[in-house]
Nucleic acid binder design. Structure first.
Lengths: 258, 258
DNA sequence: TGACTGATTTGGTCTGATCATATAACATTT
DNA sequence: AAATGTTATATGATCAGACCAAATCAGTCA
């Protein structure tokens, strides 16, 4: 009855791989996930009710609920209580990507420097794509945000938010959903990290407004290369300022530590 | 007893915002998440046992378990059964970002075109950073992978895997964890999507090997701009081939549909 | 010493009930 | 008839307590 009798030609390695018993809830979650991703349950449609899944699967209520909770965290379903509630299928959306990126950044204590580098790598190309693919509606949105951006004198909160909004609007105009998701994912942590009280002297703000205007013109003119290089210049300038601020702050805390 | 009596100066909008009752498990999950992200429970350490969390929180076991399951999906804890098992804290890791990106790409049916654009936007800069920041160890790894890449004649599976590995090794050498995470997130779907049986004529493979070698030299020489432009050229060439293949396939399926 | 054996701890699952909520169906009043 | 209030019902959320399964530990026996 020895296992080795069954495999006389064993050259190396164990005859049977280590067996891992998957959890019941994970199996169910996997099956439901496949149903959703394969499109057999379309977004907007509802999954069977919990008690129905129980009788269908033969599992207990707790296992079914844990499976549903997994899918909920993954952004694949949304669950509401009450009659005619239940779990409805939805698409994960960019915010899920942003959320996991935020967890990644926070838990690893990623340097602001790394986030800025990421932005310099991505956003010029993004601006180029925006110039290429923008629609009139995209332009209207960017112009609107830019106008309010210009008028945000004094209100640092509004300045910060409109700055972020404008960059995201440019990203959306690129018509590349992956890059938009990436921008949303990294933009939030950057704007959280930067201390805006210090980065908004009147001079810096004027420069930012001018730079945005220039980039906007390139996008209007559908000039890929110009939009690219102007965005690159804008970000480099910002990164320089942010870096100097970081150094200053370190110097301060170093001095304070003494 | 009317609510409107309390607010005679109501200009617009409802007097009270819609109240949302958070779920017990979500509250617990939030508190535990804060404990982890604030560093008060360090990676490697264990959360209290489920039954202990039950008595501490006053919630039921199911609610506690659902909270733990949320954190598990987020990649913040890993749970093992058995004595001295339990939930140990861990850092989310790049794979969580990649997983949510994969869900995003699959569920939205993102075009391969968009993924390739993303790569063109990111990877040249990544190669430049690699040239700037690579250590000797990074170089050794890249050389090793490249050597096996050169010798992967005939074995399409190995070619595909080593190609992916090399690009990821370059990304790691950049020492920018956000960009590495991004590369891992988009590389997998790209390599899944591309049909490698068709993209690996002997000629194409020879070109890829030559391009990798050239980029590797630039990285060895710590030449940012050269690494950047060579990677850009390599990716453009690849994107062109991939695009042509896509068109061919569409033409085929179009013809087949008739 | 070393291999077995049982106790112990911990997560995984099940059962069944009750609570909370949102909708639907119905009844009542104006 | 329309507006309003009331009850029934479907559904998720929560609870309680038990048992199962896995991994480790402690002791026993050869």
């Amino acid at each position: 009855m020895s296992l080795s009798e069954d495999n006389p030609a064993d050259a190396k390695g164990p005859m049977v791989e280590p067996i891992q018993v998957p959890k019941a809830s994970d199996i169910l979650a996997g099956k439901l996930r496949d149903l959703i991703l394969s499109g057999r349950i379309a977004p907007g449609e509802s999954l069977p009710a919990e008690r129905e899944l129980v009788s269908d699967s033969g599992l207990s209520r707790s296992s079914v609920r844990e499976a549903l909770r997994v899918l909920e965290v993954e952004g694949l379903i949304a669950t509401r209580p009450g009659r005619s509630g239940g779990s409805t299928v939805r698409l994960p959306g960019r915010s899920s990507v942003a959320r996991s990126m935020r967890l990644f950044v926070r838990s690893h204590g990623i340097r602001l420097e790394a986030l800025l580098e990421c932005r310099v790598a991505v956003e010029p190309y993004l601006a180029g794509l925006a110039a290429q693919n923008r629609t009139e509606q995209d332009l209207a949105e960017m112009r609107d945000i830019h106008q309010r951006f210009e008028q945000s004198q004094g209100d640092v909160g509004a300045y910060k938010r409109l700055n972020l909004d404008w960059h995201l609007a440019v990203a959306r105009a690129s018509r590349n959903e992956v890059l938009v998701a990436l921008m949303e994912a990294i933009a939030q942590p950057i704007f959280d990290a930067a201390d805006y009280q210090e980065v908004t002297t009147a001079e810096i703000r004027r420069d930012a407004i001018r730079a945005h205007a220039a980039i906007l013109h390139s996008i209007e003119a559908q000039d890929f290369k110009q939009a690219y290089s102007r965005m690159e210049k804008h970000l480099s300038a910002y990164a320089t300022v942010a870096r100097r601020l970081l150094v200053d702050r370190q110097a301060q805390s170093g001095a304070a530590a003494k």
